[in-house]
Write a protein that binds this DNA or RNA. Structure first.
Lengths: 204, 204
DNA sequence: CGGGGCGGTGTTCAAGCGAAAAGATTTTGC
DNA sequence: GCAAAATCTTTTCGCTTGAACACCGCCCCG
């Protein structure tokens, strides 16, 4: 059930949200006053009181700028997962190490540990299509040792690809989830860069 | 390039993060003082100054509790997308309207408009497997009119399913992306509850 | 061995800021 | 139509809080 807000109260909430997003801190009552052109700071106070009564915000009495949206509190920890370019899931190609933005999401909801080294890559190609990983998907990877059957980003013979990590007869190798692509047997080295923990697809 | 922090400075940062997550506001210098058992508030001050010098935090001079992590600022808007139970992508079943938690993520990164009515559903079944939507995936839907070829959650003849929205000869109907499942031709009503905008998969 | 960064203590000051008391006017909901 | 909200103004008070100054011991590094 949504609380009913007046127009003015919606404006106040919108200003609070904007201020929080742009400056990082909540406005003081006097900042609210000046923003809306009030002649007195008490006007802002009473609006905050009204919003608190309706449960839209919570305040910590006596503390400065202590306005919180309750929904923001029971949110888990939000982490910025950097996107390190794209990765070939088709033909083996070099993966660029440049950071190309990041995605922010609630990592506890995904079961990602806080101190895990996590990063994301855009998938290029369709060699993992039978694992339902498509061209253009963003995969979120965690740096750790892989288990059999994990999908991994691996540096095999100098190039990075996304493949399934398979062990047969004690020998690890990489398998594409697409019959058109061959298995990759490491000639010398098989360096695992990350294990897939989540996938994010963005409908066009 | 990561700035080098001393142990004490790491503790301070950790406390700032904890305070921000649990109380919703940044601690004042005196709160930092008491938490660490400092005899003077200046100790907290100098730590904050050091952290600012190293670029870990930013401060707004003269303002109370005005400590921000720069990374949190250039993040887009984070929204809590409620999860309304699960949805059948196989056999048609009722979708429960109960809210079962939510996921928080940066919606601008996904191209979701701010005032869009967005919600999420867990996928049950494999009738959309050829569209690479698996059992257990979480689909994020936006309430709007569907276009041809969109994947939609639809209420068809009293039950909710996830299917592709297809129009042929001017007549809309729903198609499963799995040859084992038949098309669904609406007998009376075809109510679209949401259009797929994103998908989140969580590796076990 | 001398300087600089780190990690503090003690004190003082002024601005920042929430809060309360006492109205006034308008809108809204039974 | 009346009471309860909503939306403000003026004024005053006092805790909260950032900030500055002076000073101390420690350890590392060249």
């Amino acid at each position: 059930m949504q609380p009913i807000l007046t127009n003015r109260q919606k404006q106040i909430v919108e200003y609070l949200r904007m201020s929080q997003r742009e400056t990082g801190v909540m406005p003081s009552t006097r900042e609210i006053q000046h923003y809306f052109g009030f002649a007195s700071q008490t006007a802002a106070m009473s609006h905050l009181r009204a919003l608190e009564r309706k449960g839209v915000i919570q305040r910590l009495p006596g503390k400065a700028r202590a306005v919180v949206f309750p929904g923001d509190l029971d949110r888990g920890e939000i982490a910025d997962i950097p996107i390190y370019g794209s990765i070939a899931a088709g033909m083996a190609q070099d993966a660029e190490p440049e950071r190309e933005g990041s995605i922010a999401l609630d990592i506890t909801a995904l079961g990602i540990r806080h101190n895990a080294r996590t990063f994301a890559l855009k998938v290029r190609g369709d060699s993992m299509i039978d694992a339902h990983i498509c061209n253009g998907d963003t995969v979120i990877l965690e740096f750790r040792q892989p288990r059999k059957g994990d999908i991994v980003a691996a540096l095999i013979d100098g190039e990075t690809t996304l493949k399934r990590y398979v062990v047969e007869k004690g020998k690890p190798f990489l398998r594409a989830e697409n019959p058109d692509y061959p298995d990759l047997i490491p000639a010398r080295e098989l360096v695992i860069q990350g294990v897939l923990v989540a996938l994010l697809r963005h409908a066009a």
